[in-house]
Write a protein that binds this DNA or RNA. Structure first.
Length: 563
RNA sequence: CGGGGCGUAGCGCAGCCUGGUAGCGCGUCUGCUUUGGGAGCAGAAGGUCGUCGGUUCGAAUCCGGCCGCCCCGACCA
């Protein structure tokens, strides 16, 4: 492609409202443009990157035998009603009606559509297993789109669905997809982690997320050697805390006038925050008021607490606390007439907790002796906690893919069944597997950029090589660059020729912004040496020059040696 | 949903407080010069000041409604 012909609107300055690096650079480099909140258009160079990612994903799907299909985004509401998601998903699902007032939805994912068809088509165990996949637009009315294409209301997703006769089959399909996903993210040149994750609204009984670490990430991942988990579900050994023993004669009242926070009580009594038990009263539909208790230096993890309770919860209102327990700020488990759910990190010893009376706490409180409780893993892990003796770190990450073991969550309500050898009707076991190519592109930019611009991984750059001809149009340098451009393509690489009538500074700056992995420059200097200068975009490292005679082999060699 | 901010030329911004000819830089167009790090000179085009209403002799500027966009949090397959 000739740059003079390419619609590549580069900008010297980032959009005023851009915050994330990938947002700034992808707009500046002319890859994407915004049309509305969370609504983005891909311009030619950006779309090339998107489609290169798609090609990698497609190749790995085909390799594991998945079959490509395409299903509508606009769908009847009925299957969504049957799975219960029409009501459970909430405002994130776009709902609309047609001219006959029939209810429709814009699909945010395609479990309903895929299962609907499989339920109609599959009759026998002989037809199983198989995997279907598509690249299709998803529509989600996100409460807060942000950061360019990192979180949008409309985006293309590769979504795959496996259909097996039983749990063992699902495990095999899941493992195959997991291996394919590992290969995809490696091939795309990302740094990534596969982490344990929550199943969220998808239902099912097991899931992993693929996380690409970068500063603009919205998720947090807890990492230790051999361990990686979304902070939502991560568990680790807490940092130990020095505790006095429990008081032998039972808890003792201490005055703590006006001290309602962990920090104030800790300072006033000379006890480390971890020596306190902090109470977090919540209300659930099933069991009413529950007092959730953690070590004073720990925080509640809402996802883990929801799992421990087995139902959703809300924080108790102040008046509920005052009516049932005591003055907010001074409540505690000892003597409280509500069930106590105690975090596992609260070990043996004598703790300080609220006394359920104004301006008083209790010292020397021992769980079990001084209050009954049930246990749960409720806390959010902190950096410095340990897994197998290794301290964890917490890194922000972009979620670039997620795989779920769905089981029969969708096949049951939609009637996706088969007849087994004995003629018995059985539910099909499903898995679902999603990847966002746009997020892969944004994550790659986040991970591989510098002051100058983007430094694409080799596999997903808009073009492999950018050829720059210096000098005036019609000069010998330009003619040599033109010949080199053809040789690069003859070498099997994609190439962009900067044939614009522009100064060298502008050409170099734009090349560095766009970030093609290899740059070849023909100027007066290099022409005299019969060669083109070669530079790797990563680190702007100078490489062996490429001789203009028989350039193909040398270009290929430089390319293969790139990181 | 709570909090904060912003809408003036393609991009980045000033002007608003204190009402009176709509500006700057970059970019764009034409011509000449220049061609190894975002060039120089000369000329030119380009704006319903988000929108609707109010106040006023007069509104980008003051007041009100609405719309849009961004950030933080909540939320989120």
């Amino acid at each position: 492609m000739r740059l003079s012909q390419l619609l590549l609107p580069t900008e010297r300055e980032p959009p005023a409202d851009a915050e994330a690096l990938s947002h700034k650079l992808m707009v500046r480099a002319g890859l994407i443009r915004q049309m509305g909140a969370g609504l983005w258009s891909w311009l030619p160079a950006g779309w090339r990157t998107h489609e290169r990612i798609v090609a990698i994903v497609r190749a790995e799907m085909e390799r594991v035998g998945a079959q490509e299909v395409l299903m509508p985004v606009l769908q009847p509401a009925d299957p969504w009603r049957r799975t219960g998601r029409y009501d459970s998903v909430g405002a994130e699902l776009f709902r609309l009606s047609d001219r006959r007032q029939a209810d429709l939805v814009l699909a945010m994912t395609h479990e309903e559509a895929m299962t609907f068809h499989v339920a109609q088509v599959v009759r026998s165990y002989r037809e199983l297993p198989f995997v279907l996949y598509q690249f299709q637009t998803k529509e989600r009315d996100e409460p807060r789109p942000r950061a360019g294409v990192l979180r949008t209301r409309e985006f293309v997703m590769k979504d795959a669905y496996s259909f097996d006769r039983d749990r063992e089959g699902l495990e095999r399909s899941y493992a195959a997809q997991r291996d394919a996903y590992d290969a995809i993210f490696d091939r795309c040149g990302l740094r990534w982690y596969r982490v344990e994750s929550d199943v969220g609204m998808m239902g099912g009984f097991g899931a992993h997320e693929y996380m690409a670490p970068c500063p603009a990430g919205e998720d947090e991942v807890a990492l230790a050697p051999g361990y990686a988990a979304n902070v939502e579900v991560a568990s680790a050994q807490p940092r130990p805390v020095d505790l006095p023993g429990p008081l032998p004669d039972g808890p003792a009242l201490v005055d703590t006038p006006g001290h309602t926070t962990v920090e104030e009580v800790s300072r006033a009594l000379g006890v480390p925050p971890g020596g306190l038990i902090k109470a977090y009263p919540v209300v659930t539909e099933g069991r009413g008021l529950v007092m959730v208790c953690l070590r004073g230096d720990h925080r509640v993890n809402d996802v883990k607490l929801t799992h421990a309770l087995g139902e959703t919860f809300r924080p108790a209102h102040e008046h509920e606390i005052a009516d049932r327990l005591g003055p907010p700020g001074f409540i505690g488990p000892a003597g409280a007439n509500v069930p106590v759910l105690l975090d596992e990190a609260v070990g043996d010893g004598g703790y300080v907790c609220g006394a359920n009376q104004p301006d008083r706490h209790l010292r020397g409180v021992e769980p079990g002796r001084d209050f009954p409780f049930s246990r749960g893993d409720l806390r959010r892990v902190d950096a410095g906690d340990t897994v197998d003796g290794h301290p964890i770190t917490i890194e922000p990450c972009i979620e670039v893919g997620q795989i779920f073991k769905l089981g029969t969550r969708y096949s049951d309500p939609l009637g996706a069944t088969y007849l087994d050898e004995a003629g018995r009707e059985q539910a099909i076991w499903m898995g679902s597997y999603g990847i966002g190519p746009a997020r892969i592109a944004a994550a790659a930019v986040e991970q591989h950029a510098d002051e100058q611009g983007i430094a694409w991984p080799r596999a997903i750059a808009p073009y492999d090589v950018e050829v720059i001809g210096l000098g005036r149009p019609g000069s010998r340098e330009r003619e040599a660059a033109e010949r080199l451009y053809h040789q690069v393509r003859a070498a099997g690489l994609t190439a962009l020729l900067d044939d614009r009538d522009a100064g060298p500074g502008e050409k170099f700056a734009d090349a560095e912004l766009l970030g093609c992995p290899l740059r070849l420059t023909v100027g007066k200097r290099s022409l005299e040496a019969g060669a083109a200068e070669a530079q790797a975009r990563r680190g702007l490292a100078d490489l062996e020059p490429v001789p203009l005679e028989g350039a193909e082999e040398a270009v290929r060699a430089r390319w293969d040696a790139l990181p």
